[in-house]
């Protein structure tokens, strides 16, 4: 593998995302301000039910992690479909770099706006909703956050390969997956509440990541609502990351080959 080539390709694809975010600042309104409003609604649901303050913090952390999930789904996984529709995909495929570096470039490029949204959510949580984060182990928290992101983006790459094969179906699948995955991952509530279903939910990397991060920032709730220990969750996430990245590579290659065979790689408006 030519490392320099792939690093340059990654930088090349990340560039339009960063420049686009600067040149079209309307994303601040659409991708930061408005989504925060929906999220705030969940905080008020807890307030209306007189729930413990920590639950509001659960929503804030859920909002942070779903921001990355949204970046994975909309900014990366479904993006290959969009690239096909705008005639860029064939140039990507005919170029020598790894497709994973293109996807990673999209993800990294989108990180700027994603991070702005995350910081805004945290600021809103702390200042407006007065959520009190009690960080017990900052190192472990950062480690879990990082590994969760790797696993998430690995999963996004697997999806990207599936979306490459499908046409509009992929776009629709992206849409319908949002809420069910929010539910299964415990976006706005502790996932342990799902009982045995929570085991199934751990297939989605950010379920475990979110649970671990909640335990590490709201320790008073860890015993009652924590799924398993954060250390164990870190190990599972590490294994998941490796498997997902490997799967991403294999599935991207396989789907590209299948697309070449069926002739769907350059077929627009499917």
């Amino acid at each position: 593998m030519n490392v320099m080539l792939n690093l340059r390709a990654l930088k090349g694809r990340a560039y339009p995302r960063m420049i686009g975010a600067v040149r079209e600042p309307s994303w601040m309104f659409w991708e930061t301000f408005l989504p925060i409003l929906s999220m705030a609604a969940y905080v008020y649901v807890y307030r209306s039910l007189d729930a413990p303050k920590e639950f509001e913090g659960f929503v804030i952390l859920g909002g942070v992690m779903t921001t990355y999930w949204m970046n994975v789904l909309w900014g990366m996984a479904s993006q290959l479909y969009w690239e096909k529709e705008t005639a860029n995909l064939q140039l990507y495929l005919a170029a020598p770099m790894s497709k994973m570096s293109i996807l990673a470039g999209m993800a990294l490029g989108g990180m700027f706006s994603t991070s702005v949204r995350c910081i805004s959510i945290i600021v809103m949580g702390v200042i407006i909703f007065k959520v009190d984060f009690v960080v017990t182990n900052a190192g472990l928290l950062l480690g879990i956050f990082g590994v969760t992101l790797v696993a998430l983006y690995g999963m996004g790459m697997v999806f990207a390969s599936l979306f490459l094969m499908w046409g509009r179906e992929a776009w629709h699948l992206n849409m319908i997956m949002e809420e069910p995955i929010y539910f299964l991952s415990g976006y706005s509530f502790p996932v342990k509440a799902l009982g045995s279903l929570s085991l199934f939910a751990t297939v989605i990397p950010f379920t475990l990541g979110l649970d671990a991060m909640r335990q590490l920032t709201f320790p008073s709730m860890a015993t009652q609502w924590g799924l398993v220990s954060p250390h164990l969750e870190l190990v599972i996430l590490l294994v998941m990351s490796i498997i997902l990245l490997y799967l991403a590579r294999v599935s991207l290659d396989r789907m590209e080959r299948m697309g070449r065979s069926k002739g769907t790689l350059t077929m627009r408006w499917q």
Partner: peptide, 13 residues
């Protein structure tokens, strides 16, 4: 999915 999310929130509280 959206409704289940709210039901789960209600359930935990």
């Amino acid at each position: 999915g959206g409704s289940l999310l709210l039901l789960a929130m209600y359930y935990v509280v």
